[in-house]
Amino acid sequence: MSAAGITVATPLRHPARGRRAVVFAYHNVGVRCLKVLLAGGVDVALVVTHEDSANENIWFESVVSLCRSEGIAYTTPADAKSAELLARVRAAQPELMFSFYYRHMLPAELLAVAPAYNMHGSLLPEFRGRAPVNWAVLHGADVTGATLHEMTVKPDAGAIVAQMEVPILPDDSAFEVFGKVTVAAEQALWRVLPTLLAGTAPRLPNDLTRGGYFGGRTPEDGRIDWQLPAQQVYNLHRAVAPPYPGAFTDVAGVRYVIERARLGKDTCEQISNVAALSLPPGLAVVDNCIFGVCGDGRMLTISALSADGAAVSAQQLHSRLAASASGQ
Rank of each mutant, 00 (worst) to 15 (best):
V137D: 03
V137L: 02
V137G: 06
V137W: 09
L138Q: 02
H139E: 12
H139M: 09
G140T: 02
G140M: 03
G140D: 03
A141R: 15
A141M: 14
D142L: 04
D142G: 09
D142E: 13
D142A: 12
V143C: 13
V143G: 08
V143R: 15
T144A: 02
T144M: 04
T144C: 02
A146I: 01
A146V: 03
T147A: 06
T147E: 01
L148V: 15
L148M: 12
L148D: 02
L148H: 02
H149V: 04
H149D: 05
H149F: 09
H149I: 01
E150W: 07
E150G: 13
E150T: 14
M151S: 09
M151G: 02
T152R: 14
T152H: 10
T152I: 06
T152Y: 00
V153R: 11
V153W: 05
V153L: 15
K154S: 12
K154Q: 14
A157I: 04
G158M: 09
G158E: 07
G158A: 12
G158P: 08
G158C: 11
G158R: 09
G158D: 10
A159R: 15
A159I: 03
A159C: 13
I160A: 11
I160H: 07
I160D: 05
I160M: 05
I160F: 08
A162P: 06
A162H: 04
A162Q: 12
A162E: 10
Q163E: 14
Q163P: 14
M164I: 02
M164V: 13
M164P: 00
E165M: 01
E165N: 07
V166Y: 12
V166K: 11
V166H: 10
P167E: 06
P167I: 00
I168R: 10
I168E: 10
I168C: 09
L169Y: 15
L169G: 12
P170W: 05
P170V: 09
D171R: 04
D171W: 00
D172S: 11
D172H: 12
D172I: 01
D172T: 07
S173L: 12
S173A: 04
S173D: 08
F175K: 00
F175Y: 14
F175R: 01
F175N: 05
F175M: 03
F175P: 00
F175G: 05
E176T: 13
E176M: 12
E176D: 12
V177P: 11
